[in-house]
Amino acid sequence: MENTILIGGIGGQGILMFGQLLCQTALETTDKYITYFPSYSMEKRGGTSDCYVTLSDEPVGSPKAEKSDYVVIFANQALKKFEDALYPGGALFIDTSVCTEKPNRTDVHIVEVPAGEIAREIGDARVANLCMLGAFIGYTEILPPDKVLATALKKIGAKRPELRALNEEAFNKGMEIGTAAKAAHV
């Protein structure tokens, strides 16, 4: 069993953190082989920022999967770049509060998450990635949600303790959307 995940967006949106939280949780809760590969432009903020995550029962081949089971999109440019990198039947997660464009794929499941909007409603736009992470876990069930959240709070909490409650709320709201989308697709 191999799960390949591609997360694409803009520097500063927490794209790399999203991937690392999946990997760190997988390391602590599974026996899987785990490979994470980041790809980003030179700009600290505003440039492209993408990462590839592979969780597998066998040693991982390429750190950059040719096609992914799940693609998570945080920006229009990432949608354009990575829409085709999804296997037919895979799931495409889109932050609809940032992505104004619509995907062309009709052979995949689309999970629309207004992550940025939810984050702003909660009180801080920076927790949008945790909202999307919640939706991703709620939909895919590839890792235990409580463990993912615990890893997130441990990792982000150390750096930004003031965002702890907001991150938790964002994650849970995302979970609800992801779980509901899963139920609707089944």
Binding site: Q20, C23, F37, V60, P63
Partner: peptide, 9 residues
Amino acid sequence: GFTGEMMEP
């Protein structure tokens, strides 16, 4: 650069 940049346990 792939091996240098990628993360694994």
